Simulated scan of single mutants.
Amino acid sequence: MNTRPRLHHLNTTAAATVLLLSHGLAAAQATPATSSVTLFGLLDVNMSRYSPGSHAGGGVQNVINDGVVNGLNGSRWGIRVAEDLGGGLKASVLLESGLNADTGTLGQGGRAFGRQAFIALSAANAGELRLGRQYILSDSVVGQGNPFANALVNNPTTAVTNMGKALPMWFNAPRADNVVQYQTPNWAGFTAAGQIAPGEGTADRFHGLRAVYSSGPFYTGLTYEWNKSRTTGENTNKSLSFTANYNFGFMKLEGGLQRNTDLATGSVNGAASGVTNLLVTGDSSFTAHEIDGWTIGAEVPASTALVFGLNFTRMKYEAASGGANADLGKLALTARYGLSKNTFLYAGGSIATGELKAYISQKQVLQAGLRMAF
């Protein structure tokens, strides 16, 4: 197994660094630096009621969740540091710690700063370089295709429990370790970005590309992400995501498509890092080699404070050999009410459709919660 860093990856990082440094170094030396430090936090807790399908086993469950499950946001606290180096060159740091507000424990497996921990260097005309643990590129794009951005029971990326095992829907493991990211400047609404996370011998190498165009009420984004197996050297977990939305004022129309192929468990990195099971159990059982999905929905404001979210998501699971397949859908209706700019009440419900609805523990979900940022 070759764990040595690839030369072209180092060259890419070096080139981005040189570009940013050469842009503002001279001015930065002549201009005193100014900096700011911001402490922030957010708590989100909800109550959820899960009703299983007829073949799933077990009974109705009533649980209290941190907002990372069915909430508007996962609970967290963090520190932002920004330093203006002069000449348009800026440095920044983000340390963000996830926590489970329902139990008071640390999130993301007990990491000190499990949500994000990175340092960045940016210039308006040269783009931004980030180094450290951070969100993968598809997370932001996928969130633009559903109400409230990957939140509440509208979220198409929430896994379901299929006969006792976690079965993914849309791929969206939000973060990766050891990420090198470069994003271009904004060119008349268009931006592009690339990521690589080497794996360092304990995880598959992860790669990601993103292109976004956003102008006025219109947004569209595309990402392509994949792993390179640390054991076989093959490219696996290829994930293509496309989303778009348009804000008409009286409503915001949203939708997207995702195609995941050459699936494998155990990547421990990137879009498939949270995928531990690909066994699909419905009228028959098979291992999914490909998972395709689409979603369409809308956010509809009833007032300045009250916004409704409605969407439908459909997934298709297919075996490698062809023939065996199964489908699963989810129809969701939610509402968010702003008590202030920082505090929200929310509630909603979802119902599953398709062949697998009888085999999952979340055939019907009802939820209500409260979120406050500070």
Score class of each variant (00 low, 15 high):
K252I: 05
G282T: 07
F118L: 14
G282P: 06
P147K: 02
S54F: 04
Q61R: 13
L306C: 10
L20C: 02
A244G: 06
G164S: 08
Q183L: 01
G354C: 10
T276D: 08
L152P: 01
S138A: 15
A123Y: 08
S48D: 13
S138T: 15
G348I: 01
S229M: 09
V212R: 03
G127Y: 00
Y317M: 06
Q258V: 06
A197H: 04
Y50R: 03
S303A: 14
N46T: 05
G349S: 09
G127N: 03
N2S: 11
L25K: 07
G199M: 02
T184Q: 06
G201Y: 01
N235E: 14
Q258D: 02
A159P: 14
F374M: 15
G274L: 14
S350P: 01
T220P: 01
A173G: 09
L222Q: 05
L131W: 10
H207Y: 15
F374R: 13
F248Y: 12
N11V: 14
Q364Y: 09
L7A: 14
N154P: 00
T184N: 05
R4M: 10
Q108R: 13
L137N: 11
G127I: 03
H207A: 13
T158F: 11
T276Q: 05
M1E: 02
N325S: 13
L94C: 04
V160N: 08
R205F: 01
I136H: 06
S54P: 06
R111H: 13
F118Q: 13
F286I: 02
